[in-house]
């Protein structure tokens, strides 16, 4: 294999940048897809027993596959930029451990709920499900905020990113459920989703203002760069289009804009992280990337599979397309 793959140069010169892009793409897929799962989990708190079953029918077949994007993100980061993986996680020890524990509670609770037809048992599982679905995106947002702005865990930019991510997840979840149901449930989703979108926009504006004023890790210049401004513009456009689509009852289109919002947020994060991919230590993409042979190998074996994975998701979402089972019962 060493004869087939160049040992001392990257397959293309921009390969490290391409892999920075793959890391970002995996994170965006995670935020967009598991984000809708978190959103469902939070909106779940507002529903009655019958509608909860409907939400779980929408959630059941897809959440586990969605969650794997977090693993894809983490392992891609490790495979391409090991020092960043090591510094990011060890630098946010309690936060990282709390996130995996939150994911555990979120994942197990609905599975356990379905195993027993006992109201007390179900109430307890439901509480854990809502708790895990709320806390995990909040902490994940704080982690991503700390990473992008190079700030401590308890700082305004980190916390605002956390709150913003929670609002974004509610938007995604509401749009997804609205697209798969009808009647009063879909109407309620439009109400919650609209509020969440407005909260999200306010959160993003506050975040940008705080970051520009406090200027942690000298992000002000980066915030005014074309990619960052583009991400902000995309955020405003997707949010506006989403609000209009929700109002017009075009729920599938609305979900599309929520997907776009997630990508715009991660795009903003990427604009802050390139090329200084770990602001807290100043490590750049070129300093952190693995050697040519390792990255060439990951490219040849990993990238085609990523295309296949996208096809799996098309198949999965296609199979469970249309109204949720029992939604109109």
């Amino acid at each position: 294999m060493t004869e087939l793959l160049p040992v001392d140069r990257y397959l293309v010169d921009s390969l490290p940048t391409i892999w920075f892009g793959v890391v970002v793409f995996s994170l965006a897929m995670y935020v967009a897809l598991d984000g809708l799962d978190f959103g469902i989990g939070m909106l779940y708190a507002t529903r009655d027993e019958h509608e909860r079953e409907t939400l779980l029918s929408a959630f059941g077949p897809i959440w586990d596959a969605n969650e794997v994007w977090l693993v894809a993100f983490g392992t891609t980061l490790l495979a391409a930029f090991p020092p960043i993986y090591a510094r990011l996680l060890s630098g946010h020890y309690l936060l990282s451990i709390a996130i995996v524990m939150g994911l555990l509670v979120r994942g197990v609770a609905p599975e356990l709920r379905e195993q027993r037809d006992d109201p007390d048992w179900r109430r307890r599982c439901d509480r854990l499900f809502v708790f895990g679905s709320t806390v995990t995106p909040l902490l994940l947002g704080v982690l991503v905020g700390s990473w992008a702005f190079g700030t401590p865990t308890l700082s305004a930019p980190s916390l605002l990113t956390g709150v913003g991510l929670v609002a974004l997840c509610v938007t995604s979840g509401a749009a997804f459920v609205a697209a798969k149901t009808s009647g009063s449930l879909a109407d309620a989703m439009v109400r919650y989703g609209t509020t969440a979108t407005v909260v999200y926009l306010v959160g993003v504006v506050a975040l940008l203002a705080v970051a520009a004023l406090a200027n942690p890790s000298n992000v002000r210049a980066l915030l005014l760069s074309a990619p960052a401004l583009g991400a902000v513009l995309a955020t405003v456009s997707f949010a506006g289009a989403g609000l209009a689509a929700a109002r017009l009852g075009r729920h599938r289109l609305w979900f599309g804009t929520a997907f776009g919002l997630s990508f715009a947020l991660v795009g903003l994060v990427a604009a802050l992280l390139y090329p200084r991919v770990h602001p807290a230590s100043g490590l750049t993409v070129d300093a952190a990337v693995v050697s040519p042979l390792a990255l060439n190998l990951t490219t040849v074996l990993g990238l085609p599979v990523l295309a296949l994975v996208l096809w799996y998701f098309k198949f999965l979402y296609g199979t469970f397309a249309g109204p949720v089972d029992g939604a109109n019962a």
């Binding site: 894809a72 891609t76 490790l78 020092p83 993986y85 693995v290 990951t298 599979v305």
Partner: peptide, 18 residues
């Protein structure tokens, strides 16, 4: 992670993706 990232990162990423 940092010392053996080039050796273990690829297989772990393939595990997730494949």
């Amino acid at each position: 992670a940092e010392v053996s990232g080039e050796l273990i990162g690829g297989p772990l990423a393939f595990e997730a993706k494949m």
